[in-house]
Amino acid sequence: MSRALLAATAAGCLVLTGCASTVALQPAPNSGASACADISVRLPSDLVGKERRWTTAQATAAWGDPAAVLFTCGVTPPGATTMPCRTVDGVDWLVDDTDAPRTLVTTFGRVPAVQLYIDTDPTGGVSSIDALTALGPLISAYTTVTSECTAHGGATAAPTP
Rank of each mutant, 00 (worst) to 15 (best):
A37S: 15
V145W: 11
S31E: 09
T60Y: 01
R110M: 07
P29D: 10
F71L: 03
A10R: 13
P29K: 07
D65G: 14
T81N: 08
T133A: 03
M83D: 14
R53G: 11
P66C: 10
A80V: 05
G125F: 15
A28V: 06
L132G: 09
D92Q: 11
T55L: 14
T87C: 02
T160A: 10
T156S: 06
G136N: 03
P137T: 03
P137E: 03
P44R: 03
Q115K: 04
I39W: 11
T22L: 04
G90H: 06
E148R: 11
G125S: 14
C36I: 09
G49F: 03
L43Q: 05
T106C: 03
V114P: 04
A61Y: 13
G18D: 13
T133P: 08
A4C: 08
T156R: 04
P66D: 09
W93E: 04
P29F: 09
P84V: 00
A24E: 02
L104T: 01
A10W: 15
D119L: 10
G109P: 09
P101V: 07
T107K: 00
C149P: 09
A11K: 04
A4S: 15
N30K: 05
T76L: 01
A113C: 02
L6I: 13
P112R: 06
A67Y: 04
A141K: 14
R42M: 01
S45T: 08
Q115M: 08
T81G: 07
P78A: 00
T87M: 05
H152R: 07
R53F: 11
G12P: 00
C13L: 02
P101D: 03
W93N: 02
T9L: 10
L5S: 12
T106R: 00
E51G: 14
P159V: 10
R86G: 05
A35G: 10
A10S: 14
A80L: 01
Y117S: 10
I139N: 04
Y142H: 15
S31H: 14
C36Y: 10
W63P: 06
F108D: 10
G109S: 04
D65N: 13
T106P: 03
A7S: 08
V114K: 00
G124V: 12
P84M: 00
A35L: 06
M1V: 07
A35P: 13
T87R: 05
G125E: 14
P84S: 04
A131H: 15
G125I: 14
W93R: 00
C85L: 06
L25W: 08
T133M: 02
R53L: 11
L94Q: 12
L132F: 09
C73H: 00
V15S: 13
V145L: 15
S147G: 03
V23F: 03
A157C: 06
S128A: 14
P77D: 12
R102C: 11
D96L: 09
A33I: 09
T60I: 00
S21N: 12
Q26C: 07
A67K: 05
E51Q: 15
C19R: 14
G32V: 10
